[in-house]
Structures are given as C-alpha cells and as structure tokens.
Design a protein around this nucleic acid. Structure first.
Lengths: 183, 183
DNA sequence: CCGTAATTTTAATCTGGATTAAAATAATGC
DNA sequence: GCATTATTTTAATCCAGATTAAAATTACGG
C-alpha cells in the first residue's frame, strides 16, 4: 500500500493523486483505504516514514561495513540507491512535508535532520581518518543528499537505468571527497 | 508575485499553500490574484516557467563564456546557484508538474528535457576537448541536476549559506568530471 | 457449518479552498 | 476635474475529493 501510494505521489504529484487513484492500483475502493489509515495525511506520513527508513537502513549498513570514512560514504550511496531503485522502491519524494500535521511534520523533520547529521558525522570521520579531504561537511552533505533525494522524481523503474544509477552515482558524487585526489 | 508564490509553495508545500497565503505575502486578497492569473494551475505553471528560465539563462551564460567543457560546467553551476540563492530566488521546486494541465505540463517537460540535453551536450563537448573524463553523461547529468533541483527545498534565504552553496557545490559536483584527476 | 472478526463496498455527506460576479476604489491621461 | 481603465475587494457560489456510516462480503478458528 505504501509503495502504491509512493508511486502515485511521485508520478501524479501529491495534489494530483486522489485516494481513488491509490486504491485503484491495489484493486480497491478509495473508502477501503480508511481501514488501514486514518486519512490521506497519515498515508503521506507513513510513506515518508518508510522512505526515511530505507535511507537509515542503508546508512546503518554502510557504517557497519565501511572500512573508513570514504568507503562508508560510497557504500551508503550504493546501498541507498540500490534500495530506492530496486526492491524497496518506489520511495516517496518528500515534497509536502510542510502540509503534514505538526506532530507528523516534526517527527519527519527530526528524522531527516538526524539522518543528515549522521551522514555529516561520517564525512567528519573520513576527514579524521585521512580518507576524505577537508571540506565544508554541511554543504557537502546537502549536495550529495540532494542528488539522492531527487532520484525518485525521475526514476521510473527501468532496470537498466537502475543499474546505471547504482554504478555511476556513487562515483560521481564521491569523487570530490577523495583525499588522495583519485577518483 | 511569482517569487511570492514560489516561496509559499517551497515553504508550505503546494497543497498547503492557498491562494490566500500567496496573496497575503503581497498584501492582497486571494481574489485579486485572478486579475493576473487565470487560476492556481496557471500560477504554478508560471512559477515553473520562471524557474526554468533562470536555469536556461545560467547555462546560456556559461556556454558563452566557458573556455572548455569542464569550465562551462563549473560556470553553469556557479551562475545557476548564485541566481537561485540570490536575486532571482526563491525559485519554485518542480514537484507537481504532473498536476499541470496537459499543455502546460508538456511545455514544462519539453523545456526541462531541452535543458538537460543541453547540459549533457556540454558534458560531451568536455569529453571531446579532453577536459572531462569519459563517463555516462546521462547519469552524470541526472546526478548533478538533481542536486541543483533540490536546493530550493532546503535553502531559506540565509545569505551566509548562499555564499557557501555557491562556493562549495560547484567543486563538489564537478570534482568527478576532471579528466586530469585534479579537484 | 456457525459465529465472530476482518475487510471491502455502497451511498451519502461534508468541506476547504478555488473560483466568480458585481461593486468599490485607485490610477492615469486629457 | 472628468472619463476611462486598471486594480482590488466583498460576498457569494461551487465542487472535486476527502471523509463517514452502514451494509455487504470474505476469512477463519473452533
């Protein structure tokens, strides 16, 4: 259900997606969704929560297995992109956070901030262990995460493209980090 | 007016922004907007058109003044980011393209595609002139443009941050391109 | 099979904004 | 000043889609 909703929101936009549209994908009636979800706002919230989870899991795994800062960054990119464009996709783009109910909005913002902060920590640790060249971690984080966050906007499930994204993005996005000047 | 609307849409989300909200920023009544615009859909369309224009102008200028492919890419990033975060900002983030009327949607998609294609051409030319290392230009374009497109999502007008974005993003995003292996 | 709970549908409501029409006000050229 | 046009407001509508309530169907343990 959350995947169906994510696909709808990504493809038709939030305001262009009625609950009827989402339900149709599942072969249901719009009213049936209310058995699982209090209202449309909650559906969006749950989509965002899931999207955040996919990112967190990727970062967890990268931190667990990375050999140094740079390697962790690259693994994170690989894992997150593979998840978004593969089994766990589609994942919802988080436009419309502002129209969530305050509690939900704060929750999502909190989680997003924590995720960004953790990513920046990885960058810092890479600078300390010498694998990443000193840089403005805040901006670096924003630049890299932005690129990731935009993927659901244009990616439409094509397996060939998915392969290329996972193969190319990590290289492109992490090239600027390498302390050795290599790519 | 388009700047006010862009700010509203970016900060409150599309569905969270009523015409009353947009009008309030301008010290007007919601109904007054209808003097300038046929309906909300057209307002969004015009915002997107303006956003696209800002990007096109930056690319035009970069192509005109760049000394080679890599230099052109860097100039483009610099110009576009400076415009988005400076005088021309805020620029609307293009979620909700799908809910535009077909004619408007097609127009915006056409313009976006043309812009991406032109950017990819610059990458190609950089590969030919030897300034850019061979790469998957399509993915490279997506990665870089995604990062740019996401900026309006989090940037909130802070002048210090604007400076850092313009200073850091071009380096981070173009580091992977340099054929010489330098940063 | 039966009873109970889980799920879905049908058929209404309900509602927040978008939209409109007419009237009021401001600006501008002469 | 006056006529004309430009702009804004007031005060209603209007309506797509969200939401709800009750009824129908399905699943399932005993």
């Amino acid at each position: 259900m959350l995947r169906a909703a994510a696909r709808c929101f990504n493809e038709k936009g939030y305001s262009g997606s009625s609950l009827k549209d989402v339900a149709a994908i599942l072969g249901l009636t719009d009213a049936a969704l209310y058995y699982y979800v209090r209202n449309k706002e909650e559906l969006v919230y749950l989509c965002y929560l899931r999207a955040a989870d996919v990112g967190r899991e990727a970062l967890d795994r990268a931190v667990r297995t990375g050999s140094n800062g740079l390697d962790t960054v690259r693994r994170y990119l690989r894992y997150h992109l593979a998840a978004m464009t593969g089994e766990d996709g589609p994942v919802a783009i988080m436009s419309e956070i502002p129209s969530l109910r305050p509690e939900h909005r704060d929750r999502i913002l909190e989680i997003s901030r924590r995720h960004s902060a953790r990513f920046e920590d990885v960058l810092e640790s890479g600078i300390e262990d010498g694998s990443i060249a000193p840089c403005d971690v805040r901006m670096t984080g924003n630049a890299i995460m932005g690129s990731l966050n935009w993927v659901p906007k244009w990616f439409r499930g094509d397996a060939d493209i998915a392969t290329r994204v996972v193969a190319e993005f990590p290289t492109i996005l992490s090239a600027g980090l390498d302390a050795s000047g290599r790519r």
